[in-house]
Design a protein around this nucleic acid. Structure first.
Lengths: 197, 197
DNA sequence: CCTACCGATCGGTAGG
DNA sequence: CCTACCGATCGGTAGG
């Protein structure tokens, strides 16, 4: 599980505002003045709650990274076959995209601005996540549940297929979650499953 | 067809260097100093070849936008069924991703930094492209070649499924193009085609 | 294509 | 949490 350090209400406000700003303007193009205005403070007052602009990015990126890695850990422990695990991975991605559209956009698009140390930690987590997913896919191929495609291409195609949901914030609210979920999952499932089953 | 204005060799050098820089650092975090150094000029000398930093972004984004819209136009004129057109759309996206990895990353990730006017032009082109793709998908559904999924979700899932190829520049060189191509296309085709055929 | 330079804005600090 | 401020860097121009 990810660590749960207590975060003050004000800090949470700042992080949320930053996530929205970073999402629409990008990290580099968002100034601390923008953020201060959005949250109703003077620029300098921001620094009573956060250490630096970079700390905000780090917090947002690793918050999401933990959402994924905690989710995958639970899925790996499930006592089910590969296809059900893949289904659970898709649920994980779709739910995160719908529930955290802003921070997930930052996670997806702005991680390159992480400092050298955080960047290498981040990339390590990603590699490890991908390794976990690939191992499930390999199980599916071995069990002849999945078509025998190259693991890299298979994984990237599956995960990519869900990487648009967080952009359509307005169009796909809570009521439509189930439609998105069932449609995307059906497409991917038919796409990858072996014709034998 | 897209316009073909002559571009000097030096300007092309600058545009290429900018595409690479924007790809890895992002538009906002790339300075004209970075670009000048990369291309072996003083900053001020850049402005003999380009009007502004923004002009570079505009050029790169619309170059790619034209690649897509020209490609789609040709596909729409084909005298084939919906599935073959969808196949051609996938080829289009995969080939562009492999042949223009840098500018396509800029096109995908940095368009939000376009000036208001260019942004609205850009968004209009995207809307029009999506309309064209959806109309082909609708034909496929009507002909019962495709499963009857919501058009928006169907289109986004298909196009998204290919939106990782341009990131894997080193891993998927020319020799592997055909593997990526056949795998991704097989997955998507199986994913969306009606079980009737 | 370069030297020299400019006003604006950046992230962040001192001190209260 | 604010006033006041700072050095660094930004995109870009003048003039040759």
């Amino acid at each position: 599980m990810s660590s749960t350090i207590k975060i003050s209400k004000r800090k949470r406000e700042i992080l949320n505002a930053a996530a929205v700003l970073f999402r629409y303007k990008g990290y580099a193009a968002t100034s601390m003045r923008d953020l201060a205005e959005k949250v109703g403070l003077e620029v300098s007052s921001l620094y009573s709650h956060i250490k630096s602009k970079e700390e905000i990015l780090t917090t947002l990126c690793f918050h999401c990274a933990n959402l994924y890695s905690d989710g995958l850990k639970q899925i790996c422990d499930m006592d089910t076959d590969a296809m059900q695990k893949i289904d659970a991975i898709m649920d994980l991605h779709i739910n995160i995209a719908i529930d955290h559209p802003s921070s997930i956009t930052v996670f997806n698009d702005e991680w390159k601005h992480l400092s050298a140390d955080d960047l290498s930690r981040f990339l390590k987590m990603r590699k490890s996540y991908e390794k976990g997913v690939k191992s499930i896919l390999q199980d599916g191929i071995t069990a002849e549940i999945l078509k025998d495609y190259p693991l890299d291409i298979l994984m990237n195609t599956i995960l990519s297929a869900m990487r648009w949901i967080h952009y359509s914030n307005s169009g796909y609210s809570a009521i439509e979650r189930s439609t998105v979920q069932s449609t995307v999952k059906n497409i991917v499932r038919s796409g990858i499953s072996s014709s034998l089953t």
